[in-house]
């Protein structure tokens, strides 16, 4: 399974994401934001956390319009997999690959702590390694993780089983406690919590490991 992890100026979780993919058995290529094309044969693109372009204009807005993101959009439109974490989730909403928007946390503070997540669906290659309703602990670290969308969009996400994770105790005011959502084809996942920060015993938890393992399994046998 081939993964590409993108680095924007200001990305700071790109290495951790690459390490998490590698530990799960993926072959990882690091890609710079000015590259105009993804490497040949990439199965999944990882868009890491951080503060791309200093969060100027809006979080993720400049990154979403960078040269490599045109390639990412084409990859997703061809049915390719994309995983956007934290700033990566913000980039995915800015590209409109995922609906809604991520706004300033309701309490206005930057939140950096482990949070409880409920796995809402196992009907995706990202979440197949979990059980429905299972509670896991994954850290968040964000200032703008307050997911908002119209009631119609939320209904659609619910109806189509596209809410991947919800918070067990909402830290940021996100509508419907949403922590992560899937695209209509379930191949694009955006989530605010950082699964790549809980893939090794030394991290203090391994609840993120099954997400990467599940992806490698699904995309290797495919």
């Amino acid at each position: 399974m081939k993964a590409a992890v993108i680095t924007f100026p200001g990305s700071n979780c790109d290495r951790d994401l690459a390490v998490a993919f590698e530990a799960a058995g993926a072959q990882v290529t690091r890609v710079w934001h000015k590259d105009v094309a993804l490497p040949e044969g990439v199965d999944i693109v990882g868009i890491p956390g951080g503060f791309s372009f200093g969060d100027y204009l809006r979080c993720g807005a400049i990154a979403a319009n960078s040269p490599i993101c045109r390639g990412v959009i084409e990859h997703a439109n061809r049915g390719g997999y994309v995983l956007g974490i934290c700033n990566g989730f913000q980039v995915l909403t800015e590209t409109r690959l995922l609906p809604g928007a991520l706004m300033r946390n309701a309490g206005l503070k930057f939140i950096c702590k482990p949070v409880g997540l409920r796995v809402e669906t196992v009907d995706s290659d990202f979440t197949a390694g979990y059980t429905t309703g299972e509670e896991i602990t994954v850290p968040v670290a964000h200032h703008d993780g307050n997911y908002q969308a119209t009631p119609e969009v939320i209904e659609e996400l619910r109806g189509e089983g596209r809410i991947a994770f919800t918070y067990t105790a909402n830290p940021n005011g996100a509508v419907a406690d949403i922590a992560g959502i899937l695209s209509a084809n379930k191949r694009v996942l955006g989530m605010m919590p950082h699964p790549e920060r809980v893939v090794d015993e030394a991290h203090g938890g391994t609840d993120g490991k099954r997400l990467f393992a599940g992806l490698v399994d699904a995309l290797t046998t495919a």
């Binding site: 204009l57 809006r58 807005a61 319009n65 909403t93 800015e94 809604g100 928007a101 908002q148």
Partner: peptide, 9 residues
Amino acid sequence: EKLLANTVI
């Protein structure tokens, strides 16, 4: 439409 505003919000 393309950059300066996010018309979702």
